[in-house]
Design a protein around this nucleic acid. Structure first.
Length: 244
DNA sequence: AACTCGCTCAACCGCGGTAAA
DNA sequence: TTTTACCGCGGTTGAGCGAGT
């Protein structure tokens, strides 16, 4: 009854990711796209659960991520959106290209929250903390604070530096990304090729891959034969495909 | 130099909704 | 229909680091 587990919980590794694990995950997603997370660890030769792979990719390895602190314009937008959406970090992140919900949540808890509290503004309700007499000044403070922040340009999904898993991105983004460059550069096991950054659905991927003919070239391309703990061959790839 | 403290943020945990067997 | 895993989300934790003493 029910599904089979995606991974043996006892064999799953936890804790910080190593550069080697990052390379394997990037290499896999570069050619397959971020889909079917439960299959990713097995196919990529990682002793991680799919959940952990997804988190690592979306929060750290994605090529369209901006790094560093949120700028003033982004901060302003976060405050505005938080006022209307509350702690729906994923919704807020969707409006800030290149930022993750985790990143925004962290920034809110460590920076913005304090700023608002110092200004006498409740970071939860966005209302003044103090009573009547100071109400208007606190509100003015917030209005003034937000007013003086620069305006973030409208993105409406056309930002060339951003993409979601369903949008097109250019592979040059990888080359321009310092993290990914540093992980992939000069590594003979990780071929660097131009791969269109377009993620089809999992079904599309599995249906579009000419499995029988091109498995070996795919494996050669990925350098999967170097993964000692998982024997990659067309048989178990097809088995996985069958499980979809 | 050694210690403490506070901050940051990557990663984990647990939950709710959904999908698969 | 029931059971169980997957997925995505928000909350929380703790290792690592720098500043202060």
């Amino acid at each position: 009854m029910g599904r089979q587990p995606c991974c043996d919980k006892l064999e799953v590794k936890k804790g910080p990711w190593t550069a080697e694990e990052d390379k394997k995950l990037i290499s896999f997603i570069l050619s397959n796209g971020p889909c079917c997370w439960r299959a990713v660890p097995k196919l990529a030769g990682l002793r991680r659960c799919g959940k952990s792979c997804r988190l690592r990719w979306t929060n750290y390895l994605r090529p369209d991520l901006k790094r560093g602190l949120l700028n003033d314009a982004e901060e302003k937008l976060v405050i505005d959106l938080h006022a209307s959406l509350g702690n729906r970090w994923s919704k807020i992140a969707a409006r800030l290209p290149g930022r993750t919900d985790n990143e925004i949540k962290n920034h809110w808890n460590t920076h913005i929250k304090k700023k608002l509290l110092n200004m006498g503004i409740d970071p939860v309700t966005h209302e003044p903390l103090r009573k009547k007499t100071e109400t208007s000044s606190a509100k003015d403070n917030l209005a003034d604070f937000v007013k003086h922040l620069p305006v973030l340009p409208e993105t409406n999904g056309s930002d060339e530096n951003s993409c979601s898993s369903n949008e097109k991105c250019d592979s040059s983004m990888f080359k321009n990304d310092p993290l990914i460059s540093s992980l992939l550069v000069d590594d003979p096991d990780i071929p660097q090729v131009d791969v269109p950054w377009e993620f089809p659905s999992g079904e599309q991927i599995f249906d579009s891959v000419p499995w029988d003919d091109n498995i070996s070239s795919l494996l050669d391309f990925q350098g999967f034969d170097c993964f000692g703990d998982v024997e990659m061959n067309s048989a178990n790839l097809l088995e996985l495909r069958h499980e979809q």
